[in-house]
Write a protein that binds this DNA or RNA. Structure first.
Lengths: 188, 188
DNA sequence: TTGCATGGTGAACGAACGTTCACTATACTG
DNA sequence: CAGTATAGTGAACGTTCGTTCACCATGCAA
């Protein structure tokens, strides 16, 4: 029954939709849709897929997700029964409101002490009010940067890099906070 | 027509499948499926959705993706015509082979100089041969760690942290490389 | 041996699917 | 003004959908 799970997964990844009952029949080698129907009920009990109101099967969360196995100190369990553990949808985890989210590629090393390096991608969300300490994408005096947003006691704000080699930026004319950084992505 | 795009997107996010023609009719306020059919053809021309062999519409890549707007120095364009630019599917970007990928949460600061901090999530891929310089998840002398894999001239290997406060680990008895780190995720 | 789950076949059902055609109303163009 | 796209209505089409029923084969328990 895990082979069925895998067949559905690969179909879903290839077609970006769930297979119909007759497609599953050919997928599993069945000649009758009824065999599929019985199997699907078990898959639903197993939590792999779900049905919506129209009776079509839709992917359960697990289909898009990656197993989350715990802390790195615990390593990677060798047993196959890792099915019980958590899974994570990276997209949903990082992007809360996709209509307001954008990805920017990081240039420079001004946030290096925050662990954000050149070439990383940051997920920026527009339209949220930035708080003190947030990492913001801001236009200051005509140029764009990514920095910490800091508020002074008198209420004025400035931008502070996470790199002791650079100095804070006190806006002379203009400071527009376009978005705040919600996440960082790095690929090796 | 961008409002249509948004309606489809929210339907897709809620139901995890594409709407049927009649569902789109109610979704858009149409009373005829034909109006939807004509609209869908335009959406296909616009690259928002695609049809498969059975005539059902499937999400084009753009539906799962987040706009990729360029370098952080360029900031966020204010114009709405950002539709032309690139988009990125974070899941597909980070996870190449989902059957072999796992997520681990980082504990400790041994990779801090690589920009990997406690609480970050790393995407680890099993079953690939690690090269010199890769960041690996390894079991050494009974404990699990994440370190650089280094190869000496004599062919022997050791593990090097990205933290000058820690010393390299020369395996005494056993070194098992379980996976290599393919990506890092941080959420604020 | 009988009895009974289990797992599959095959056919039929109504409902929903995407497609198509003829038609109407609105709006823009010359 | 006439002419023509454009956008939507409404109904009909053949197909496929998920569901259901009766039936058959195998294997296990009593």
């Amino acid at each position: 029954m895990d082979t069925h799970r895998r067949a559905i997964q690969s179909f879903y990844e290839e077609h970006r939709r769930m297979p119909s009952y007759s497609e599953m029949a050919t997928l599993f080698g069945f000649k009758s849709k009824n065999a599929v129907a019985k199997l699907v009920n078990k898959l639903i009990d197993g939590g792999l897929v779900t049905k919506d109101a129209q009776g079509r099967i839709i992917p359960s969360r697990a289909l898009n997700e990656v197993p989350l196995l715990g802390l790195v100190e615990a390593g990677i369990p060798t047993s196959v029964d890792a099915e019980l553990s958590d899974t994570l949808d990276i997209n949903a985890y990082l992007v809360e409101d996709r209509a307001r989210s954008y990805i920017l590629e990081v240039k420079g090393d001004s946030m290096i002490e925050e662990g954000i390096r050149e070439g990383d991608l940051v997920i920026a969300e527009k339209g949220v009010t930035a708080k003190d300490g947030d990492i913001v994408i801001a236009e200051v005096d005509g140029g764009w940067t990514m920095k910490y947003l800091r508020t002074k006691k008198d209420g004025s704000v400035y931008l502070e890099p996470a790199n002791s080699a650079y100095k804070p930026i006190y806006p002379k004319y203009d400071l527009t906070i376009a978005a705040i950084v919600k996440g960082v992505i790095r690929k090796y």
